[in-house]
Design a protein around this nucleic acid. Structure first.
Length: 728
RNA sequence: GCGCGCUUAGCUCAGUUGGUAGAGCGACCCCUUGACGUGGGGUAGGCCAGGGGUUCGAGUCCCUUAGCGCGCACCA
């Protein structure tokens, strides 16, 4: 037996692939090259100024958060898109951003305050804002490092934060423009109020919960009314029924009746309104306009009085008489007790199932309240968006999100954009102390109310964080005047979670169209949830949260990325397990050893030799594959491409071609050997290129270790900016 | 109630414009220590949820039933 010849592969190839020894160094190499920035690519002649731009705006990440599996997915998919397009010669920009995440962050900070024995209500707003800002900025370095860890090739020189001055300015301009166009109004309207968080919400921030509760049938004069909320009934002085209801034909609209109620005799007025469902309950109800949206609408229609019964903290007001100051939850049974004593409770249904609206964050029952808030009149914006969507100006992946979106847009309601929290962009407006009217005032000029002459004070509310983030695609690019905006807008792909199709994506479309006149992006790519190995939603309380950084540390980032993309079709959720990721670590090692085999066995190569008949057949198979995957990359079918490359590299290239090469090198003619060497080197070259968007670290590492004799003038620039294996 | 999906091998899922069912993981069997912290070869036979229809032909189009999931709107 001959002794093994000395290896020509670098020593590190004698050991398994070690991601920890590679990733930090490679990311630095990329960053130092400057090629995450398309301007630098242009400057160095890697793309021409004729090159088409390709732009992705990263969904701004919560600056205060840490990377979870969902982020891992975003970063992986967007990086694949970005690296692919960069290799295809596009002027590629992936713009990273951080989000102040208004309410979310404030809630986190409130918990911190709570631990310190403080509450936000005792801190002066400006000081509180500064505290949260410091807190957020301190933590933001963390999330950025984590994004880098996933290998994100985004242009950090263009990083934006949602509270940057220029962003805020853009948001203000939009606010003003909405006002000028009559699309903004300040209205005393019923809003969804969280008694714990002391702020209003949009309809999207409310979670419905089905509950079984008591349903009381109460005697209200000659009528019986049904309610699940007796604690709101103190002020009820209108009794409503359907105008066509024969049972109550004897009563007339506007008729007054006297009756005994919770705290004594009252006079009630009869109202006839078609909003009443004759089939439900007794077909009669009393209304509480201040605390119920339907009742509010009825009161508006008939110009009825509205009285507040429950305060902002969920406690009863003086109208409740002896129950004043009492928490509504506590008051309910006591009120029923009193009603029973007065003989006003006819019956109680103990198994009444209905839906209660709760705060998505704390689960507290939402207490509707009438408040003066800023609303955006959405119908015109939605109509414009619908027109463009229906005419096919935007592509949805998966396609059915288009239907979901149009359905939502067709039924859109006005958007409450003011929040009673300090952590956010202050609303640039003044409020009249006398009449409550609001005025947009960007430059702090207004002093007196144009309507009633009263004094104006600063509006203390902030914008719903989604109002500013809905402007992100153009705001982050420096709308309106910047070169970047001209070059990169409209952007190409908006890749984000299907969960926020309404919150964010649809609103970006509406505001993008409204402000710039153009669709903010050409394609919407929506991914699903990342679930645990058993297919369950990850949650802290269940303790099944998988930390992406634990996985990257254990198996390497490339393996993690493969685990994220393979088997992950758009819009469907992905079950993530250690086993899956570990399988791709093996694959990384396989690639490593493919390289080692070639480096050890091919000392030199002549890239101009003709191929043997046998190798031509192998090349046909290979090149057919590359043609297929290129088409699939263009269709965003990354899950297929990754799997095909895995399959080819392992079971074709390694199992068949490399194994067979051992015989070729021993038994065939010099021509045959030369042909095979060329095949090996060329295929490795193509494979590294094709795998690079998926597994950037190991491919870059192998690329940089390619022996000079095989590199043929390559290797001067990073693989990251080399070309995709075929040009179609 | 309205809307949107899903139901394919034990598990996770692919199946593009309709043409005699695929991958990964797992399982099982055999082999192997000079590219590989193992690897190679092989096996496993799923009425493509049920029913109906269109078609020469349907997992792939249409209708329908059932189960599951999600979204929206809600009746006091």
């Amino acid at each position: 037996m001959n002794e093994k010849p000395p290896s020509k592969a670098p020593d590190k190839f004698l050991k398994p692939y070690d991601p920890a020894a590679v990733e930090g160094r490679i990311y630095k190499l990329w960053q130092d090259s400057g090629y995450f920035n398309p301007d630098k690519c242009l400057e160095d002649g890697l793309v021409t100024d004729m090159a088409k731009p390709f732009t992705i705006i990263m969904p701004p990440t919560n600056a205060n958060g840490s990377l979870h599996a969902g982020h891992g997915l975003v970063m992986t998919i967007e990086d694949i898109m970005t690296r692919y397009k960069r290799m295809r010669g596009y002027r590629t920009l992936w713009l990273p951003g951080l989000d102040h995440a208004g309410f979310e962050t404030q809630v986190v900070y409130e918990k911190k305050l709570e631990k310190e024995g403080r509450t936000r209500f005792e801190i002066e707003p400006k000081k509180l804002y500064q505290e949260i800002l410091d807190f957020t900025l301190t933590n933001s370095a963390n999330i950025k490092e984590q994004i880098k860890k996933i290998g994100a090739s985004c242009d950090w020189s263009r990083e934006k934060f949602t509270l940057d001055n220029d962003i805020v300015r853009t948001v203000y301009d939009t606010f003003k423009r909405l006002s000028e166009d009559g699309l903004l109004y300040r209205g005393k309207r019923i809003v969804s109020w969280c008694p714990k968080h002391q702020t209003s919400f949009s309809d999207l921030e409310i979670k419905d919960e089905e509950r079984t509760e008591e349903f009381y049938y109460l005697k209200y004069g000659p009528f019986t009314i049904a309610t699940s909320r007796p604690e709101t009934k103190f002020g009820d002085k209108y009794v409503v029924m359907h105008p066509d209801d024969k049972r109550y034909a004897e009563y007339e609209d506007g008729q007054k009746i006297s009756l005994e109620w919770i705290n004594g005799p009252i006079t009630a007025t009869i109202i006839k309104d078609k909003a009443i469902d004759m089939e439900f309950g007794t077909g009669v109800m009393t209304i509480t306009p201040w605390h119920d949206p339907v009742d509010f609408e009825i009161a508006e229609r008939h110009h009825l009085d509205k009285e507040q019964i429950i305060d902002e903290r969920g406690k009863l007001l003086p109208i409740a008489g002896e129950f004043v100051g009492m928490n509504i939850k506590k008051a309910r049974p006591l009120i029923i007790e009193k009603l029973k004593a007065k003989g006003l409770v006819e019956k109680t249904d103990m198994n009444y199932k209905h839906v209660v609206r709760t705060c998505y964050k704390c689960g507290t029952i939402i207490e509707p309240q009438i408040k003066s808030q800023w609303f955006v009149h959405m119908k015109p914006l939605a109509d414009k968006a619908l027109e463009k969507i229906k005419s096919g100006e935007i592509e949805y992946i998966p396609e059915h999100y288009k239907k979901i979106t149009t359905h939502w847009l067709e039924n859109i309601i006005d958007w409450n954009i003011s929040r009673q929290i300090v952590w956010g962009i202050p609303i640039p407006a003044k409020i009249c102390q006398k009449c409550g009217e609001g005025f947009v005032d960007l430059d702090d000029k207004l002093r007196t109310c144009a309507k009633c002459g009263g004094d104006l004070i600063k509006d203390n509310d902030t914008f719903d964080t989604w109002f500013s983030s809905s402007q992100w695609p153009f705001a982050s690019l420096g709308f309106p005047g910047s070169e970047d905006f001209k070059t990169y807008y409209p952007t190409d792909v908006m890749e984000t979670a299907g969960e926020i199709i309404f919150f964010w994506v649809s609103r970006m479309i509406m505001l993008g169209l409204y402000v710039t006149g153009k669709m903010p992006f050409k394609t919407v790519y929506l991914h699903g949830l990342v679930l645990d190995a058993k297919g369950q939603k990850m949650s802290k309380s269940k303790g099944n949260v998988i930390d992406p950084l634990t996985l990257t540390a254990k198996f390497g980032t490339d393996a993690f990325r493969m685990g994220m993309v393979i088997g992950n079709t758009p819009g469907t959720s992905l079950a993530l397990s250690e086993g899956k990721v570990s399988a791709y670590k093996k694959f990384a090692n396989k690639l490593w050893n493919i390289a080692r085999f070639i480096f050890e066995n091919v000392n030199d190569v002549d890239m101009s030799v003709s191929y043997s008949a046998n190798d031509v057949a192998l090349i046909d198979v290979r090149d057919k594959l590359f043609k297929e995957i290129t088409a699939e990359m263009d269709e965003y079918k990354f899950y297929i491409v990754a799997e095909k490359l895995y399959q080819y590299a392992w079971h074709q290239f390694a199992d068949q071609i490399l194994e067979n090469s051992k015989h070729v090198f021993q038994n065939e003619s010099a021509e045959g050997i030369a042909s095979r060497k060329r095949l090996l080197v060329e295929t490795l070259d193509k494979l590294l290129r094709a795998l690079h968007p998926f597994m950037p670290y190991i491919t870059e590492e192998i690329w940089s270790d390619m022996p000079v004799a095989l590199a043929a003038g390559k290797g001067k620039k990073p693989l990251m900016v080399e070309s995709w294996p075929i040009i179609t």
